[in-house]
Design a protein around this nucleic acid. Structure first.
Lengths: 148, 148
DNA sequence: GTCCGAGATTAGACAGAATCTAAGTTAGGA
DNA sequence: TCCTAACTTAGATTCTGTCTAATCTCGGAC
C-alpha cells in the first residue's frame, strides 16, 4: 500500500494524513511480525523523539477504525497489530509466543441464524503449535500431535 | 469435571491440589461467561478473604499449563479464562466485547508441512459480529454483512 | 493573507492488569 | 518428627493503556 492510498483511506474516514500516522503505517508495513503497541511506539519515537505515546495509541486506534490496520487476537498482555495487506490467519507458537501469518483459506462460518447473532466478518483462525525455531528437529517426535 | 479428576490432572503435572486451586476451577466451571482474571480473583477472594491476587494469577497460569483451563485469545486488556469442558469456538461481540461460546465444529487445518511448523492443537476459531443484545432488530439491516 | 475552529499532538498524571519479591505456611516423603 | 519443596501471602513494582489540559497545525471562510 503506497502513501497516496493510505492518505485516501484516512481522508475517506475523516482523518488527516499526518507524519505520525505515516510513521506507524510505514513501520507496520515493514515489520510483518505483528509488533506490539509498545514496539511501534519505540520505533516511531526513535524516528521522532518528540512523538508521544498517547499519539501512537490514538493513531493505532484510528487506523484500526479506518480499516488500515488490524488488531490481532492473541492472549498476552499487549495488543499486537498487523498492517492489513493480504487476508491471512494467524499461527501462535506455544513456546515462544511468536505470531506468524498463515495463508488465507476460507473457513466455514457457523450458521448465523442458529446463533442468534449477526456475523460481520470472515472467521479468523488461530492455529497453535511450535514454530520452526521451537519445534524439535525432524524425525525426533518428542511432543507428538496433541489434539486436546 | 469432578474434584477427583481435577486432582489427578494436577498431580500428573506435579502440582498439588489446594483449596485455592479448587476454588478457581469451581468458579470457572460454574461461570461459562469467560471471566477475567480479576473477576476470578474477586470471586475466590469473596470465599476466602485471605487469598491473594498473586496466588490466583499463579494458579491460573498453572491450570492453563496443566491443560485444565484455557486462556481465550481476545483483544482487550484483561485475560479471559475458560474451564476446558466441551470443545468450542468463540464469538466476540464487536460492540460490547462479550465473549460467547460457539458450538464446536471441525475446521480444516492448514497443511502442517507447508508451514514448516508443528500444529499441536485443534484450530481455534474467532467469530466476530454483533451479539443478540447488540444486533439491530430483525428485518432492519443497518450494518449488512461486511466481509472486510 | 488572516482568522477561526476542528482535529491532532504533547507531556505527564492516572488507572488497571499482571508480575515480582521476600517471608511465612503447608504437605508429604524420609 | 524433621526436612524440603511446593504453595501462599502482602505489598511493591512494572507494564500497558487511557485521560486531561495545553498547545499546535491544517484547511476553509472571509
Amino acid at each position: 500500500m503506497d502513501t497516496e492510498s493510505i492518505r485516501q483511506s484516512l481522508e475517506s474516514n475523516g482523518l488527516r494524513f499526518t507524519p505520525q500516522r505515516h510513521c506507524v503505517m510505514a513501520f507496520l508495513m515493514e515489520h510483518a511480525g505483528h509488533p506490539t503497541a509498545a514496539e511501534i511506539f519505540q520505533a516511531v519515537n526513535r524516528l521522532d523523539p518528540r512523538s508521544s505515546r498517547a499519539t501512537t495509541y490514538n493513531n493505532l486506534r484510528d487506523l484500526v477504525q479506518a480499516g488500515l490496520v488490524r488488531e490481532v487476537a492473541v492472549e498476552g498482555r499487549s495488543a499486537r497489530f498487523d498492517a492489513k495487506g493480504m487476508r491471512h490467519h494467524h499461527f501462535i507458537c506455544d513456546r515462544c509466543g511468536k505470531v506468524e501469518d498463515v495463508d488465507w483459506y476460507d473457513v466455514p462460518k457457523p450458521a448465523s441464524s442458529s446463533l442468534g447473532k449477526r456475523i460481520l466478518r470472515e472467521c479468523e483462525l488461530i492455529v497453535r503449535g511450535l514454530c520452526t525455531g521451537c519445534a524439535p528437529a525432524k524425525g525426533r517426535r518428542r511432543m507428538g500431535v496433541e489434539t486436546e
